[in-house]
Design a binder for these strands. Sequence first.
DNA 1: AATGAATGAGATTTCATTCAT
DNA 2: AATGAATGAAATCTCATTCAT
Lengths: 201, 201, 201, 201
Amino acid sequence: MVRIVKNPEERRTELIETAESLFFQKGYEYTAVSDIVKKINVGQGTFYHYFKSKEDILEAVAEKIVAPIAEDVRNIAKGNEDSATKVNSILNSILKAGNSETGFMKLMHQKGNYLLHDKLEEALKAKISPIIAEVISKGMDEGFFNMSYPKESFILLLSSTLYLSHHFTWDHEARERMCAALEEITARVLGVKDYRFHLEI
Amino acid sequence: MVRIVKNPEERRTELIETAESLFFQKGYEYTAVSDIVKKINVGQGTFYHYFKSKEDILEAVAEKIVAPIAEDVRNIAKGNEDSATKVNSILNSILKAGNSETGFMKLMHQKGNYLLHDKLEEALKAKISPIIAEVISKGMDEGFFNMSYPKESFILLLSSTLYLSHHFTWDHEARERMCAALEEITARVLGVKDYRFHLEI
Amino acid sequence: MVRIVKNPEERRTELIETAESLFFQKGYEYTAVSDIVKKINVGQGTFYHYFKSKEDILEAVAEKIVAPIAEDVRNIAKGNEDSATKVNSILNSILKAGNSETGFMKLMHQKGNYLLHDKLEEALKAKISPIIAEVISKGMDEGFFNMSYPKESFILLLSSTLYLSHHFTWDHEARERMCAALEEITARVLGVKDYRFHLEI
Amino acid sequence: MVRIVKNPEERRTELIETAESLFFQKGYEYTAVSDIVKKINVGQGTFYHYFKSKEDILEAVAEKIVAPIAEDVRNIAKGNEDSATKVNSILNSILKAGNSETGFMKLMHQKGNYLLHDKLEEALKAKISPIIAEVISKGMDEGFFNMSYPKESFILLLSSTLYLSHHFTWDHEARERMCAALEEITARVLGVKDYRFHLEI
DNA sequence: AATGAATGAGATTTCATTCAT
DNA sequence: AATGAATGAAATCTCATTCAT
């Protein structure tokens, strides 16, 4: 085979992107390392030059997915809106990222992607929870929110949100209702009075 | 090997119980069919008399786990208590079943048990949701509860509850707080005014 | 592939014999499990039905080789000859088994057979040393042999014998001389006076 | 990485020493070329500037180990002592070099070092045998030693000596006995009458 | 109903060596 | 002289399932 030397950064990215697209199509378990390397015409060994195992690239893929979401959430948190609006935007941002045509939800809930599911959930929580915690905390101080156990309550709310995302297969109407329910729940859990959440899936 | 003929029902149960115990110890993925049959000294082929695949016995295990919980919930639903009390009991019943020493939670959240997780969640929802739905619905009629989308809201609440169960490893204090948060959330989601939930993990 | 069911004992032997012959031809390291199974037209899995690893069959091969030698030595030890004659026969038996056309020496000293070398040496010592020890001990009691440290001395002598076997590649004359040297050494080490050892390679 | 140019001789030595230390720790087979180069922070390609293969550096390591021993032996041979004393010193020199904390014996008898074992034995024999042969020969002429096949006998004796070294892990008493046995054997094999060997491990 | 020998596709990983830079 | 990205062949082992008995 012709040997093509590339900037390592570039090669690495190439591998991650290829892996992601294959995990999306066939699922992690059903994607062989050989599928990945064949697709970009590099040797099998090249893969192991960059990742020490198949699970290793899975983590890289999970990070690649979560990074822009975390970035988004971070930006929202930095903004000047009031806390309820921020929470609303954050939830929408997550729902949107998850449910778009190539969103992480489709990826997560596929037969061969159980492990990816785990890694994603973990990464999401690790990167996003702390940011939200701050928003909530500020909202509490300002009297916007009213919860006895803000941190815990929000984790539970977030899990509901992610759970909702699961159900991207539902028919339109069902999703609408689910979404509306989540709006109500969010308001109630946060103890918000004069704010109406608007979520979209 | 000496060939021991047993009552088919008995053999089947024996296989399911063995499978369950192995899934508990090592996880579904890491349990080979050969592990199961070796443990009760039957031939490999025997397994395939009773189950058409490995996934098949997984479903049987999931059902075996869910059945008594559903039974419990059904009994609570039949009782004479008011609706809020019933919901309270139901949630506790689920939490308890999930968190006991050999409860389904430990099983669900183990590395090789992703598929089992799925099947359990599915089975739980299939068997339990309708019963709860009725309780909720009655509570709504009686003015006990107040939600715009009772069914959807409760599913989300239930998912939070299960999610909470996840975290049975936390230290005592953390779990106490989590539990208290769930009590508050439950009340708020259901739109209950004059009832204080008491959950236990 | 047509499935041919055989008596397990037979299949196992078939595998061991095939493995031995391949190790002899190409060396252990250069023999793939797939080579073995292909040669007798069974599935790859069949191999792992009988041996839990490639190293496992290596041990079986080593045992198969050592067993008849140990048997021989045991029979010699049981005989009615005087101790010196027994020792002479034992050494010859080992030399002969090692140096015959398909003897273990050729097997041992081949590039890909280092591990087999080890296993063989180990097995030889484990099975044969105790028998010899007894012969020596009896010879000491009868005044045939005369050594201050019989056990230790004989181990050293045996190692020389095996070492000698190494050199099956030498030309005829060199081997003759080596053999004659060993005869003298044996007599001296054992402290034998009126016996002339006759070794053959 | 910063590129550091060194005196080729120095670089070569650095590589050999690193290889030796790794072979000592992990064994030749389990030491990757990449382990060696990583340890001294040079590129993978640099290795192949100095050695044409992995086996090539193995030989260099073997030579490095054997050289000082041969030097020692050569010096002893040059001395004015009588032949028996010289043999005694030579054997001790070899035993000492082999059994010191980082001696070649530990190296030789390690799982991944079969090939090194071979190379060492070969090198030892090539460099040391001729020197000893001369000492022996002189001793024969002077009537000190008495053997029918001096060269062959001594090789066998040497192999026993090395074999003994093998067992440097034995407990103190066992080694004492082994050593004493070797003293007796040496005297007998050489046909020495009025000399008592004193070996130390 | 029961057995257990047989199957075989396929996946991950290693690493000595090469070569474009 | 030095680099280190790239290569790729090859090998072991797993295990759900089948099927001759």
